[in-house]
Structures are given as structure tokens and as C-alpha cells.
Amino acid sequence: MPSTLPALLCLGLYLSLRVGAQNETLSKPLIWAETSFMVPNGASVFVWCQGSRRAIEYQLHFEGVFVLERLKAPGLMNKVKFSIQPMNSSTAGKYTCFYRTGELWSEPSDPLDLVITGMYDRPTLSVHPGPEVLPGENVTFFCHLETATTTFFLHKEGPASRPWRRVSNSPAAFSMGPVTPAHRGMYRCFGSYNEHMWSFPSEPVTLLVTGDAGVTDLASTGQPSSPDSWEPHWSTTKKGLRKDLIPWDYTAENLFRVGLGLLVLVALMCLLAHTGLLRKKKKRVSSQERRRRFRWQGALDE
């Protein structure tokens, strides 16, 4: 028993410290661009970083290097915005952000790819067999650019849309189908010499999918069947934002810590009580032993 109680006490203290250490890991923030990750040359763009209401500082990094800092009072907001202006070839690339609560820094956000447009000639975009098709048909978009490049992007306008890349000689062909009503929309194409510097956008081509022909729209993305699709991170939009990025259920954490504290307290009280009983027992035994020795000594004297 004497060895068991100290062991329980040490175990409770260890678990409490371990839970506290695990809670010090902060979730990564969200990052997105307002209003699009594609920014015309010379324009400005706002980059938002969403962390925790407990955050007191945010940092924005470009290509892994710290560039901007924002301080705020804890609890007022769980997000801040950074202004990048003007947008040019030296500011296009990958951005990440961090936030700090106390002395702890969060993990980096997913990277945000900011693309600058309007750097080269304007390509031309066409669609075959035509801009108006029936559900179930196949279509092909052709992007042509006189400037010598072999990288092309096709983009459908929309807040959650992503571009698709084709590495090909001009004209680049983007095959799509069988089409559904989800493929309806306005398309533009770009030429590029790297992933973050694109040409002027082409004139838009609107694809119309008429009739239903028994085809059901099952949330199709309208993605061309291109093997070279380029998928920027979903953090380029505000889709899926959370109200607050608190990585731990603090109610459950507090209950767990209270339970551990009670366990430690009970173990300590039991240990003290057990120690007190041992002392009393020793005193009683010692007193009885002295009386026994006294009577024995008296008998010898007689």
C-alpha cells in the first residue's frame, strides 16, 4: 500500500503534464485570396488568414520567407487580412500564414498560389463542335497563343473553380465530356511560362448544355479529361471556412483535468492518512513496549 499511493500520485501528475503538452499544439490556419487567386498585373489583392480567437499575432510568409506581420487584441476577431500591392512578377508565388497565442506559433497554413495575369499576349479560345451542346456529348476547347509557350491553362469562372493545365504545342486541346448541366459556364484560357505568371485572359467562351436527355447532374465539377491538370489549393477560396480554429474541446479538457486533479488530491489525502495511521500505530506499539519493559524491570527488581 505505501508504494502504491506514491505511484498513483506520480501517474496522475504525469498524465496531467502530458495532456497540457499535447494541448500546446495549435492547428494550422486557413488562407485565401480576396476575391481571386488570379490577380491582374499592377492590381492589389487582399490575403486573409484565419486562426483562433486567442491569437494575438499573425505572420504572412512568401516562398517560405517572412514578409508581413499583423497584431491584434485577443478575442476581437479570429482572422486578419494582408494587403499586397501592387501585384507584379516579384510578388506572385506561394504564400503561407501563421498565428501566435502566447508564446506558441501555429503550424503553417496550406500554401496559397497567387497568380499574376496580363504578362504576355492574349490567346484565343474556341470550342468544338460548338458552344451549344446536348448532355452526354463531348466537347474540346482549343487555346491558341502566338507567343512561344507550351503551357496553357483553362479556367471556368466561379468561386470554387480551379484551372486545368495542358502542356502542349499551340493550340492546346482540353477535352471534356460527356457533359452535364454542371459544365455550363464561361471559360477563359491563359498561356504561361511558369505556374505563377500567366498571359492576358482570352475572350470568354460560354458553354451551353441544353435539354436534359435523361442526364442527371450529380455535382459534376466539369473537369476536362486533361492528364496535366493543375490543382491550386482549396485555400484559394473561402469555401469551408470555420468559425474558430480551436484544436481542442476545452470543456472536455477541463473536465479531464479536474478529474486528474481530484485523483491526485485523493491519492495525496490517502497517502497522508496512511502515513498518520502508521505513526499512531508506531506510537501505540512504542508505548506498549515501554510499559511492558517497565513492568518487566519492576519484576526483576523485586
Rank of each mutant, 00 (worst) to 15 (best):
E103C: 05
T151N: 05
P247I: 02
L263Y: 07
E146N: 08
L271C: 08
F46D: 10
A148F: 05
C49A: 09
D113M: 07
Q50P: 03
T221C: 09
R165V: 03
H144V: 06
T25P: 00
V215M: 06
T91Q: 01
P135F: 07
M77F: 11
M176S: 15
Q50K: 15
G136S: 04
S16Q: 07
K243T: 05
V80Q: 01
L260N: 09
T149H: 01
S3H: 09
G191N: 07
G158L: 09
T147Q: 14
F62R: 05
K282W: 04
L300A: 12
R70P: 00
P74W: 11
S168C: 08
T210K: 15
E63F: 01
A33D: 10
E231A: 04
R18G: 01
H196I: 08
L154W: 03
G261M: 05
P204F: 04
E195H: 01
S106F: 03
P6D: 02
L265R: 04
E195A: 05
T275I: 02
Y250N: 04
V19P: 00
A213I: 00
W32D: 04
E195C: 08
A299K: 15
E103D: 14
E24S: 15
G42V: 08
A299C: 06
P108L: 11
Y250D: 03
L71H: 10
L245W: 03
T180K: 07
V115A: 12
R165E: 11
T4V: 10
L60F: 08
P29H: 06
K72D: 01
V205L: 12
L11R: 09
G12M: 06
R293K: 15
S226K: 01
H196L: 06
D301G: 04
A7Q: 13
D113E: 13
A267K: 00
R100P: 04
S287H: 12
P135D: 10
A55Y: 03
Y99E: 04
F153R: 03
E57L: 08
P247D: 07
S168H: 11
T275S: 14
G42Y: 02
N41E: 09
E63M: 15
W234C: 00
H196N: 11
K281S: 08
V209N: 11
L255Y: 14
E132S: 14
N41C: 10
V127E: 00
L278C: 14
R166K: 15
G93S: 07
R18H: 12
F153M: 09
S36R: 04
L11Q: 06
P111K: 11
A21G: 03
R284L: 12
T221A: 12
A55L: 07
P227M: 02
R184C: 08
G276H: 12
M186R: 13
G102P: 10
F62H: 13
P135I: 13
N169G: 05
C10F: 08
K94H: 11
P224I: 05
Y99L: 06
Y187M: 04
R70K: 14
H233I: 10
T149M: 15
L260R: 11
G75C: 10
S90N: 08
M119K: 03
R53F: 15
S175Q: 13
K81V: 01
T147K: 03
R292D: 14
K239Q: 13
R162N: 01
A73I: 15
D228K: 04
V67D: 03
F200R: 13
L30H: 09
G214A: 02
P108G: 08
N169Q: 06
M176W: 10
F142N: 13
E24Y: 09
T210R: 15
N194C: 08
